[in-house]
Protein backbone atom coordinates (compact mmCIF):
# COMPACT_ATOMS: atom_id res chain seq x y z
CA UNK A 1 0.00 0.00 0.00
CA UNK A 2 1.47 3.30 -1.01
CA UNK A 3 1.32 6.66 0.68
CA UNK A 4 -1.09 7.98 -1.93
CA UNK A 5 -3.95 6.12 -0.25
CA UNK A 6 -3.42 8.11 2.93
CA UNK A 7 -2.95 11.36 1.09
CA UNK A 8 -6.15 10.80 -0.88
CA UNK A 9 -8.01 9.82 2.29
CA UNK A 10 -6.93 12.94 4.16
CA UNK A 11 -7.56 15.40 1.33
CA UNK A 12 -10.87 13.83 0.44
CA UNK A 13 -12.12 13.85 4.02
CA UNK A 14 -10.84 17.35 4.72
CA UNK A 15 -11.69 19.30 1.58
CA UNK A 16 -13.76 17.41 -0.95
CA UNK A 17 -16.20 15.68 1.37
CA UNK A 18 -15.92 18.23 4.15
CA UNK A 19 -17.92 17.00 7.15
CA UNK A 20 -19.77 20.23 7.75
CA UNK A 21 -20.27 21.76 4.34
CA UNK A 22 -20.63 18.69 2.15
CA UNK A 23 -21.89 15.97 4.46
CA UNK A 24 -23.83 18.18 6.89
CA UNK A 25 -22.43 16.54 9.99
CA UNK A 26 -21.81 18.71 13.01
CA UNK A 27 -23.88 21.63 11.80
CA UNK A 28 -25.14 22.26 15.33
CA UNK A 29 -21.74 23.18 16.84
CA UNK A 30 -20.87 24.86 13.56
CA UNK A 31 -23.70 27.33 14.15
CA UNK A 32 -23.66 27.22 17.94
CA UNK A 33 -20.08 27.78 19.04
CA UNK A 34 -18.75 29.78 16.12
CA UNK A 35 -19.48 33.18 17.56
CA UNK A 36 -15.85 33.76 18.55
CA UNK A 37 -12.82 32.21 16.91
CA UNK A 38 -11.36 31.35 20.30
CA UNK A 39 -14.29 29.10 21.26
CA UNK A 40 -14.29 27.67 17.75
CA UNK A 41 -10.70 26.55 18.19
CA UNK A 42 -11.39 25.01 21.60
CA UNK A 43 -14.34 23.12 20.23
CA UNK A 44 -12.44 21.84 17.22
CA UNK A 45 -9.54 20.64 19.40
CA UNK A 46 -11.96 18.65 21.55
CA UNK A 47 -13.76 17.31 18.48
CA UNK A 48 -10.52 16.33 16.82
CA UNK A 49 -9.34 14.24 19.74
CA UNK A 50 -12.65 12.48 20.36
CA UNK A 51 -13.29 11.93 16.66
CA UNK A 52 -9.97 10.18 16.02
CA UNK A 53 -10.00 8.03 19.15
CA UNK A 54 -13.72 7.37 18.76
CA UNK A 55 -13.43 6.13 15.21
CA UNK A 56 -10.55 3.82 16.12
CA UNK A 57 -12.56 2.35 19.00
CA UNK A 58 -15.76 1.91 17.01
CA UNK A 59 -13.82 0.36 14.13
CA UNK A 60 -12.21 -2.16 16.46
CA UNK A 61 -15.51 -2.98 18.14
CA UNK A 62 -17.26 -3.39 14.80
CA UNK A 63 -14.71 -5.72 13.25
CA UNK A 64 -13.62 -7.65 16.33
CA UNK A 65 -16.84 -7.95 18.33
CA UNK A 66 -19.90 -7.24 16.23
CA UNK A 67 -19.05 -8.70 12.86
CA UNK A 68 -17.53 -12.06 13.92
CA UNK A 69 -20.63 -12.72 16.01
CA UNK A 70 -23.00 -11.51 13.30
CA UNK A 71 -24.66 -8.89 15.49
CA UNK A 72 -23.88 -5.80 13.40
CA UNK A 73 -27.48 -4.62 13.79
CA UNK A 74 -26.67 -3.31 17.27
CA UNK A 75 -23.92 -1.09 15.88
CA UNK A 76 -25.87 2.18 16.33
CA UNK A 77 -26.53 1.66 20.01
CA UNK A 78 -23.01 0.28 20.58
CA UNK A 79 -21.33 3.20 18.79
CA UNK A 80 -23.17 5.98 20.57
CA UNK A 81 -22.54 4.39 23.96
CA UNK A 82 -18.86 3.83 23.21
CA UNK A 83 -18.47 7.45 22.14
CA UNK A 84 -20.38 8.68 25.17
CA UNK A 85 -18.23 6.67 27.56
CA UNK A 86 -15.09 7.74 25.75
CA UNK A 87 -16.08 11.34 26.36
CA UNK A 88 -16.59 10.61 30.05
CA UNK A 89 -13.16 8.98 30.32
CA UNK A 90 -11.49 11.83 28.45
CA UNK A 91 -13.15 14.34 30.75
CA UNK A 92 -12.00 12.46 33.85
CA UNK A 93 -8.49 12.17 32.48
CA UNK A 94 -8.29 15.85 31.71
CA UNK A 95 -9.68 16.76 35.11
CA UNK A 96 -6.95 14.67 36.67
CA UNK A 97 -3.92 15.78 34.69
CA UNK A 98 -4.26 19.44 33.93
CA UNK A 99 -6.36 22.23 35.27
CA UNK A 100 -5.35 24.44 32.41
CA UNK A 101 -6.37 21.97 29.74
CA UNK A 102 -9.67 21.41 31.50
CA UNK A 103 -10.32 25.12 31.52
CA UNK A 104 -9.68 25.25 27.80
CA UNK A 105 -11.61 22.17 26.70
CA UNK A 106 -13.81 21.14 29.63
CA UNK A 107 -16.92 23.03 28.65
CA UNK A 108 -16.91 21.58 25.15
CA UNK A 109 -16.69 17.94 26.17
CA UNK A 110 -20.31 17.48 27.32
CA UNK A 111 -21.43 18.97 24.01
CA UNK A 112 -19.56 16.41 22.01
CA UNK A 113 -21.78 13.46 22.87
CA UNK A 114 -24.60 14.94 20.85
CA UNK A 115 -22.33 16.13 18.05
CA UNK A 116 -23.42 14.28 14.95
CA UNK A 117 -19.99 14.59 13.34
CA UNK A 118 -18.41 12.11 15.76
CA UNK A 119 -20.99 9.37 15.33
CA UNK A 120 -21.33 10.21 11.65
CA UNK A 121 -17.62 9.76 10.92
CA UNK A 122 -17.59 6.50 12.90
CA UNK A 123 -20.53 5.21 10.83
CA UNK A 124 -19.02 6.43 7.57
CA UNK A 125 -15.75 4.61 8.25
CA UNK A 126 -17.71 1.37 8.41
CA UNK A 127 -19.92 2.16 5.42
CA UNK A 128 -17.05 3.17 3.17
CA UNK A 129 -15.82 -0.41 3.48
CA UNK A 130 -12.15 0.30 4.17
CA UNK A 131 -11.80 -3.12 5.78
CA UNK A 132 -13.06 -4.86 2.64
CA UNK A 133 -10.75 -2.80 0.42
CA UNK A 134 -7.51 -2.91 2.39
CA UNK A 135 -7.98 -5.68 4.93
CA UNK A 136 -8.91 -5.09 8.56
CA UNK A 137 -5.45 -4.03 9.75
CA UNK A 138 -4.64 -1.55 7.01
CA UNK A 139 -8.28 -0.53 6.82
CA UNK A 140 -7.90 0.72 10.38
CA UNK A 141 -5.01 2.95 9.28
CA UNK A 142 -7.05 4.35 6.40
CA UNK A 143 -10.07 4.86 8.62
CA UNK A 144 -7.95 6.68 11.20
CA UNK A 145 -6.40 8.85 8.50
CA UNK A 146 -9.77 9.84 7.14
CA UNK A 147 -10.99 10.58 10.67
CA UNK A 148 -8.00 12.90 11.11
CA UNK A 149 -8.84 14.49 7.76
CA UNK A 150 -12.46 14.94 8.74
CA UNK A 151 -11.46 16.53 12.04
CA UNK A 152 -9.04 18.89 10.29
CA UNK A 153 -11.78 19.79 7.83
CA UNK A 154 -14.15 20.51 10.70
CA UNK A 155 -11.55 22.71 12.38
CA UNK A 156 -10.75 24.56 9.16
CA UNK A 157 -14.36 25.31 8.33
CA UNK A 158 -15.47 26.25 11.83
CA UNK A 159 -12.46 28.55 12.31
CA UNK A 160 -12.99 30.25 8.94
CA UNK A 161 -16.69 30.60 9.66
CA UNK A 162 -16.12 32.10 13.10
CA UNK A 163 -13.67 34.62 11.67
CA UNK A 164 -16.28 35.63 9.10
CA UNK A 165 -18.91 35.92 11.79
CA UNK A 166 -16.69 38.19 13.88
CA UNK A 167 -16.50 40.54 10.91
CA UNK A 168 -20.19 40.10 10.22
CA UNK A 169 -21.06 41.42 13.67
CA UNK A 170 -19.78 44.82 12.63
CA UNK A 171 -21.62 44.77 9.31
CA UNK A 172 -24.89 46.52 8.75
CA UNK A 173 -27.22 43.59 8.10
CA UNK A 174 -30.97 44.06 7.54
CA UNK A 175 -32.84 43.38 10.76
CA UNK A 176 -34.63 40.23 9.59
CA UNK A 177 -31.36 38.66 8.43
CA UNK A 178 -29.40 39.39 11.60
CA UNK A 179 -27.85 36.44 13.43
CA UNK A 180 -28.52 32.96 12.17
CA UNK A 181 -30.11 33.65 8.74
CA UNK A 182 -27.15 35.60 7.41
CA UNK A 183 -24.77 33.05 8.94
CA UNK A 184 -26.56 30.31 7.03
CA UNK A 185 -26.21 32.27 3.80
CA UNK A 186 -22.50 32.70 4.53
CA UNK A 187 -22.24 28.95 5.12
CA UNK A 188 -24.03 28.38 1.81
CA UNK A 189 -21.51 30.55 -0.01
CA UNK A 190 -18.67 28.69 1.71
CA UNK A 191 -20.24 25.41 0.55
CA UNK A 192 -20.31 26.79 -3.01
CA UNK A 193 -16.61 27.60 -2.70
CA UNK A 194 -15.86 24.09 -1.49
CA UNK A 195 -17.81 22.73 -4.43
CA UNK A 196 -15.02 24.11 -6.57
CA UNK A 197 -12.56 21.71 -4.95
CA UNK A 198 -14.41 18.71 -6.33
CA UNK A 199 -12.27 16.69 -8.67
CA UNK A 200 -8.89 17.54 -7.11
CA UNK A 201 -8.17 13.91 -6.37
Amino acid sequence: MSMTVFFVAIVSAMLINNVVLMRFLGVCPFLGVSKKSETALGMSAAVMFVMVVGSILTYLIYYFVLEPNDITYISTIAFILVIASLVQFVEMFIKKISKKLYKALGIYLPLIVTNCAILGVAELNIREGYAADYGIGQGLLVATTSAIGAALGFALVIFAFSSIRERLDAANVPKAWKGIPISLIVAGIMALAFLGLEGIV
Binding site: C28, L31, G32, V33, L111, T114, G179
Partner: peptide, 15 residues
Protein backbone atom coordinates in the same frame (compact mmCIF):
# COMPACT_ATOMS: atom_id res chain seq x y z
CA UNK B 1 -25.63 21.08 27.19
CA UNK B 2 -25.75 17.33 27.08
CA UNK B 3 -29.37 17.45 26.07
CA UNK B 4 -28.91 19.88 23.29
CA UNK B 5 -25.68 21.12 21.95
CA UNK B 6 -26.51 23.97 19.80
CA UNK B 7 -29.53 25.65 21.29
CA UNK B 8 -28.60 25.52 24.93
CA UNK B 9 -24.94 26.16 24.71
CA UNK B 10 -24.45 28.29 21.67
CA UNK B 11 -27.31 30.18 20.27
CA UNK B 12 -29.32 30.67 23.42
CA UNK B 13 -26.34 32.18 25.18
CA UNK B 14 -25.63 34.39 22.22
CA UNK B 15 -29.21 35.56 22.18
Amino acid sequence: CASCTNYSCGIKQNM
